[in-house]
Design a protein around this nucleic acid. Structure first.
Lengths: 145, 145
DNA sequence: TAAAATATAGTTTATATTAGCAAGTAACGG
DNA sequence: CCGTTACTTGCTAATATAAACTATATTTTA
């Protein structure tokens, strides 16, 4: 017997978190979002921020990006788009190229599965790190810290 | 002044971990690998397994897959290939389709960056979960546990 | 509108993974 | 060979995130 669908509510906390995330073009961490939200709602807890980020992701209002580093970044733009990850400074940039939804069909036929969407990430060095302009570059993997 | 390149060694531990991972077609967790390695090297520590998985990834001998779930899976096949992630049972399947390296060039020109490689993951329901055969299916996101 | 059902918040605890450190071991120059 | 250096191990502590639990708030039902 199936369970009934979950009815999500747009609470004060959830709304503020969504607004903070949509208010930036960057891809912030959960902790950065927590600090921002605390300025208007000081008693919110970090656990609530994490929980709501997960719910907002399930509601398809935001995206979670977990590439490259040990922590997740969040993207207030839920529209499908690709990302570039700088392996030197860990920056994540949006890529303004069309999303090839036709692949989903190909993969579905090949596997006999249902494909809802796909993600693509490109890895390399961003312009700032190539030109040596970036100040927070991480050492390359073959260099010792 | 630049640091010298890191000289990795192929130690006993590192070799066994690599062999265990290459010995399976599945995409196991770090903990599963740890249990397997312990059968031939009982005194190895879990931290050493994690450290070597990271080093092997940097040596480009294996891949780390961190999609969908709260833990990473590892892939003994270092050759570029795409993956399918089942959102019902969390299985990760290999996709036998050509890798479109031409995108890397496109993105490099668009961003003015250097692109080394890309990854692509498809999300949906695997054949077993569609037919209701899978025994370890997770509840859908709109269902309450 | 009161009672029942359901979703959420805040807090505490658990989990997966990483980082730091002292001791061991392999590579290298003399 | 012997000492020096650099990489690795096992251990312990730290970190990011999820899960569990209770109390509160919101929605639905009667």
């Amino acid at each position: 017997m199936d369970k009934l669908p979950q009815l999500y509510r747009m609470t004060k906390q959830r709304k503020i978190i969504l607004d903070v995330l949509r208010g930036t073009k960057e891809h912030p961490t959960a902790d950065w979002i927590y600090e921002q939200v605390r300025q208007t709602m000081p008693r919110i807890s970090l656990g609530t921020v994490y929980r709501n980020l997960r719910v907002l992701k399930e509601m398809q209002d935001i995206q979670e990006l977990n590439y490259g580093s040990t922590y997740s970044l969040y993207d207030g733009n839920a529209e499908p788009h690709y990302h570039f990850v700088c392996q030197d400074c860990a920056a994540v940039l949006d890529i303004d190229l069309p999303v090839y939804t036709s692949y989903d069909q190909q993969v579905a036929e090949l596997l006999g599965s249902q494909v809802d969407f796909h993600r693509m990430e490109f890895y390399g060095s961003c312009p700032d790190c190539i030109s040596g302009k970036s100040t927070n570059s991480k050492p390359k993997m073959w260099e010792q810290l």
